[in-house]
Structures are given as C-alpha cells and as structure tokens.
Design a protein around this nucleic acid. Structure first.
Length: 722
DNA sequence: TCTTCCGCTTTTTTT
DNA sequence: AAGCGGAAGA
C-alpha cells in the first residue's frame, strides 16, 4: 500500500485531516461524515507515511465497541496485526496504566475494579454505618456527588469544609468512602481516571516515558470527555501538540454525566497552534432529513456552527403522525414496519427510537402480537446479572479476603444462618478498629462473645472461603470458576427458585465458566499479572455485549442515547411530546433543553432513507392519563420537509378494552358473607370485606374497629359470627 | 428466615 | 403501572 491509497478514497476535508502535519487537530465531524474513517486513516497515515510504529500510537474511545471497531478497521486498512497498539476506552487504558504501575499509583497489586452497582452498595452501607439518615441523604445522591468530584479531579482533601450542612455531610461521606476503598483495594470507574491522572502527574519519569512513547494521541467523541479525561490527555501531549481529536458539539448528549463540551472550546486556547477542520459532507441521509436536522439544531445557541449537506437527492419527506394515544402510536409504527418488510425491506434496517426505556413496552406488545422479531437494546448485561455478580464476589473474596464489598455480598448468599445481627456486629468491630470485615469476623470469633450458633455459622463461611482458595490455588482460571459455582451453594440456591428464572441463572453460571475458559489472558495482560484479577477487571470494565447471540433479522428498539453512532434506513422517532421529549426534568433549564435538542438531532440523523416522527394526543404515564402538547421540536422542523399522515377513518380507540384487565376471580360464596359482622379473640369486632381462596387456603379480609384492615386465614382464625 | 404488604418514585448510560 | 425497598407478619 502506498501513500496515495491511504487518502485516495477520501473527500477533500477528510484528506486534509488525515494528512495534516503532526500538530493539534480538532476535527468537527458531523453525523455521518466519516468520523471513524478519518481516525482510522489518520492512524494508517501515521504508520505508512510518517513511519511511526504501532507502539507510538494511542487511540482513546468511550466504548469498548468503538475501540474494537477501530482496531479492526486499522488492521484491515494496513493489513497488519494491531494487537499491540494502545487502542481502548479511557477506563481501559487507565486501568492498564494502574496495573503496570500499581506501586507508584499507591494501589495494592491486587486492586479490584468496582462497577457502579458495587460502588452503590458500598456507599449505601457506608451511609448506614455512619448512622446517617438515608432518606435525607440518598446513597444515589451521595454516589453522584462523589463521582462528580472525582470527574473534576477533586479529592476529599482538596475540599474545604464550609458551614453548609449539605457540603459538610457529603464531604464526610466522601472521606469515609475513600478510606473504605483504600482499605479494601477497591477502585471505582471515576477513580480509575483520577488515579491514572495523578499517577502521570506525580511521576515525572513515567510521564516522560509515555510522552515519548506516544507520538500521536487520537481521541474519538471528544465532546463527551469530562474534565479529568481531558486533563489526562493534556498531560500526555504536553508541549508536543500531538493531539488529534474528533468530535461533534451538536451530538454532545452526556452532559448529565459530567461530559464537558467546553473541552472543545478550551482545546483551542490550550493548543494555540491547532487547526480546525469541519467535516460537513454527509454520506448517510437524504437531503430532506439533513435539512430538517440542520433547521432543528440551529435553534441552539451554544454551538460552533456546522451545516451538513449531501449530494444525494432530496429523498422522501419526513412523515409526521399524530396518534390518539400510545397504543395507537405503536399500532401505526408496527403497521408501517409490516408494510416495509412486505415490500422486501429488512427488519434490521428499522429502528424505533424513544426518549426513555419505559416507552418500549407498547411497541414490544404490538410487535409480539404481529410476530415481528425485534430486539431491545439496553437492560442488564451479562456481567451485571445478580448470579454472575455473586459468583464473581466469591472469586474476589477468594483473591482478596479484605474486599469488604464482596465479602458482604456473599457472606449470607446463599443463606447460611448469618443474619443481620451478626453482620452488624462484624461491621461495628471493623469500623471501631479499622479492620476489614474479614479480620473483624476472625476477631469476633476469637473473642467468643457470640452465640455458639452464630459463631459456628461464621466459622463455616470463613473456612469455606479459605478451603476454596487452597483448592483453587494451582487450578486453571475456568476451573476456579467452576469450583466456586459448585461449592458456593449458589446452584442449589437457584435450583430452589421457582420458574424458569432459576434455570436461566444456573445456565448463566455455566456460561461464566465458558467465559473464563475463552478469556484471552495474554491479550489483556502484557504485564503478566494475576490471571484471576485480570478476569475480574475484565468483567467490570466490559460488562459483556448485549445478547449478541441473536442473529435473527430483527427490528431494533433503543433509546436515543444508545442510538448514537448507528444508522438505519427506516427510523421511527416516537413520543415527541412536551414532558416526555424534551423530558420534564429539562424543561426549565436552557442548557438542558439544548441537550435534549441535540438528542433529537442525533435521532433525526440516524435515518438514511425514511424518517417517521410520531406523537400522541393522550398518553398513559405513571398510571395516569395525560394529554401532552406536541413537542416544541416539531415546530422547529420547517413544514416544507414534513408531510402529515392523515388519521385513519376507523379509529380503534380502545375505550374500555384497554382499561379492563383480567381480574383474579374472587370467591364470592364462602363461609361468611360480605358485610358480615364478626368477632376475633385478639382483634375484637369487625366487618368482613373480602374473601378469597378455598378450603385450607380460604382467607377473609376484615376491617376491625380497633386494628383496621387484616387478612386472616379461616383455618387459623377463630371467628365468631355476630 | 422468608414472605407479603404498603408506600414511594418515576430520564438518558458507559465505564 | 410497576418495580423497589423497608417494615411487619408467619
């Protein structure tokens, strides 16, 4: 391959970006303008033309999926193996640095990565253990506070205590949380980034080493970086201006989790020699779709300014459908999909995009009844499932006895007679003497002040973990997993669970052993660290692709957020109503409204050929009928690009049908009559209100004069008819 | 210890 | 509506 062919297939702007001299570059890449293409070819250019080795390249993305895709495309372009190239997510790369230099990062070699669920549990427990009212200080909010500080690079020690109760309490919790994490060797997602930043900042030799190594640093989705991520990038490229970032300010939709569009602006002042290149030619959508998107986003004030264009034709107008209610909306969409498929369209090219997950249900129901295969994105991923997290927690405690979060998770799962009281005692002792829960448990046993029963149960648990550790010691990773699954009692626990749920859980546990077997240790670990720890980190950092095993031709259902980066021939943008989209919570904040508008912009620009936008005149929300106004975004799309679809003449508005749900039949004829006055030995006099069940299961609900409503089993309660 | 009931909340999601 | 968490009952 020669120089020409690397840039041969590119348009002028793309070519300019790819072949630019080595200096700070800001590529403003609109939707569908070939952003990944530019990144991949830029890397190719660095290697082919500038003569860099793959070891000199650093490429950062936000998702594992994007990282994987980029690596694959680099390999295809250059026809080489890019295994050794540092392409990864911010978190993945930070993790790699911390493992390599754990000591300098002041972390134990065996530190563990917590996912957000782990973090939440730790914080929840912390709030409780400090006797702080968790209704006034919800753990979720505490977690949000702590993460927000870390995203800004602020440690507890940097914060000055003010008289403010809120700030004081949060700070107290932040401090205590840091202590727990340090003691247990736990690192949450935000900590990975913060710690990696501090590692480079405080170790000059390391920083110089990596600065020299990475001759070119590439960043995807730059508009989504937060403060600490950007600070980390700046450290690595300090004084060298070798930062190549690609982003789109109009697609910044993660402000709510700390992303700073401002980074795009600061980039320009931090790197005065930078060059900006706009990619505005779109290769995805028809002109009508693009013009609508342009018109919509023009209503935002905070933008750098960019207008997408295409040289493909106008295409069809955007269809707007006003539904009676959410049922009708779903009916309309599914009928259109059926038509599309019957005309030879592929279901995979169709997406239904909504603002919030709760909206998926109505579409699922309609798709189900018409037997249209579909797939919903989002939801629990493999490594986030309860049974998997439990098994992993066993592995963690085995690997590190002082991992309090995992210890607590499994100490009584499955139940082994260690109740809240015992656990509270362990926690108390641990807190008082600053021990890990494991150490506290041992101390507690040796003090011999517990009941024999509790002490025995605890001993059994500790011995289980110890003996599992010994037995697993020289075994292969997947055998360790198998051992845990078998001996922990989890399988027995889930066997008892009724229905198919338990079965599925057991299958998942088996799948976990398979995952361990196929875990590519060498790939994930150039540093030859403990295989089990690497596997656990892998589980936290890549919670597993969504059910990727489904190869059937499916209609795609997802939120607008998860649709970013994807494209579909036929797109349905549903629920365009005030309060829903834009969301109620964003209604009175200009900045948040602009983010909602960008979200809408993302939605529109997903469509390649046809776009349907729908809204409903009435919608059942939180169990109540609402009559929302059409979304303001609808008015922002010029009428010339819209065509209104006429409401069908025969409307099947489900007046009573939808509201009447099947009721469980209530046994009307029983021993007692409704309204019958009865008397109970303990509860006194009352009136029979309801009855259900038969024979030994027969129950009555009675409104007692003194104690109010009660359900009583007839076979136990001795009632006297008055 | 396990089950049931009551009341409360309700965006978006990756790592 | 529905799911979740806490509290109370079996």
């Amino acid at each position: 391959m020669n120089n020409i062919s690397i840039i041969d297939s590119l348009n002028d702007a793309q070519r300019l970006a790819v072949s630019a001299p080595n200096r700070a570059m800001l590529i403003l890449a609109g939707a569908g303008s070939g952003k990944t293409r530019v990144l991949v070819h830029r890397i190719g250019w660095q290697i082919q033309v500038e003569g860099l080795s793959i070891h000199n390249i650093l490429a950062v993305t936000f998702t594992n999926k994007a990282a994987k895709e980029m690596r694959g495309r680099v390999e295809d372009l250059l026809n080489i193996s890019a295994k050794a190239m540092w392409i990864g997510t911010f978190h993945g790369l930070a993790h790699r640095l911390l493992r390599r230099h754990a000591k300098q990062a002041k972390l134990p070699d065996t530190f563990q990565v917590m996912d957000s669920d782990d973090q939440f549990r730790v914080i929840k427990r912390l709030v409780k253990s400090l006797n702080i009212d968790d209704t006034k200080w919800p753990p979720k909010q505490v977690m949000w506070f702590i993460n927000a500080q870390k995203d800004e690079g602020i440690r507890a020690k940097h914060m000055v205590e003010s008289g403010d109760v809120y700030q004081r309490t949060m700070l107290q919790l932040y401090k205590a949380y840091e202590e727990i994490c340090n003691r247990s060797g736990l690192v949450d997602f935000a900590e990975l980034l913060l710690r990696a930043h501090e590692l480079l900042r405080d170790n000059e030799d390391l920083l110089t080493f990596y600065q020299d190594r990475f001759k070119q640093v590439h960043v995807d989705e730059f508009q989504d970086t937060n403060t600490i991520q950007y600070a980390w990038l700046r450290l690595l490229t300090e004084g060298k201006d070798n930062l190549f970032v690609v982003g789109d300010d109009d697609q910044s939709i993660y402000g709510w989790r700390g992303a700073k569009i401002e980074n795009i602006y600061s980039f320009q002042s931090h790197y005065p020699n930078h060059q900006v290149i706009k990619l505005e030619q779109n290769y995805r959508s028809t002109s009508n779709i693009l013009k609508s998107a342009n018109a919509l986003i023009a209503n935002n004030d905070a933008r750098m300014g960019k207008e997408l264009w295409t040289d493909s034709g106008d295409g069809e107008l955007i269809s707007l459908y006003t539904a009676f209610n959410e049922q009708d909306e779903a009916y309309f969409v599914v009928e259109k999909i059926r038509k599309w498929v019957s005309e030879g369209g592929s279901r995979q090219d169709v997406a239904i995009l909504y603002r919030s997950n709760a909206q998926s249900r109505q579409f699922e129901e309609k798709l189900m009844t018409t037997r249209t295969p579909y797939r919903v994105y989002g939801g629990l991923r493999f490594f986030e499932r309860m049974e998997i997290k439990n098994a992993l927690a066993y592995l963690r405690v085995m690997s590190n006895h002082h991992d309090d979060a995992s210890f607590e998770r499994v100490i009584n799962t499955p139940t082994r007679g260690i109740g809240t009281k015992t656990i509270d005692e362990i926690r108390l002792l641990a807190r008082e003497q600053e021990l890990s829960l494991w150490q506290a448990a041992i101390t507690l046993i040796s003090q011999g002040q517990m009941t024999a029963r509790a002490s025995n149960a605890l001993k059994i648990f500790l011995n289980l973990i110890k003996s599992l550790g010994e037995e697993a010691n020289d075994k292969e990773l997947f055998e360790k997993v198998k051992l845990i699954v078998e001996k922990s009692g989890l399988v027995e626990l889930y066997k008892k669970e009724k229905g198919e749920k338990g079965e599925a859980r057991i299958e998942n546990l088996e799948e976990l052993a398979n995952a361990a077997r196929s875990f590519d240790f060498d790939e994930a670990n150039e540093e030859k660290l403990n295989e089990l720890d690497m596997f656990l980190a892998h589980a936290a950092l890549e919670s597993g692709d969504m059910q990727g095993d489904d190869y059937e031709d499916c209609v795609q259902l997802m939120t607008l957020h998860s649709a970013k980066g994807l494209e579909f021939k036929l797109v349905f943008l549903v629920g365009l109503e005030e309060g829903l989209f834009p969301s109620q919570q964003s209604a009175d904040d200009v900045a948040r409204l602009e983010e909602e508008r960008r979200l809408c912009y993302v939605g529109i620009t997903r469509a390649m050929e046809q776009l349907y936008i729908t809204h409903a005149e009435s919608r059942r929300l939180y169990g109540k009928e609402t009559y929302p106004r059409p979304s303001r975004f609808l008015k922002e799309i010029p009428a010339e690009f819209l065509q209104e679809i006429r409401i069908r003449a025969n409307v099947n508005r489900p007046v009573t049908a939808s509201t009447s749900r099947p009721r469980t039949s209530v046994q009307q004829v029983g021993t007692y009559k409704m309204g019958q006055r009865v008397s109970h030995v303990k509860f006194g006099e009352g009136i029979v209100l309801q009855m259900e069940g038969e024979g030994a299961q027969e129950r009555v609900q009675i409104n007692f004069q003194d104690v109010g409503l009660k359900w009583l089993m007839l076979s136990y309660a001795k009632l006297q008819v008055l």
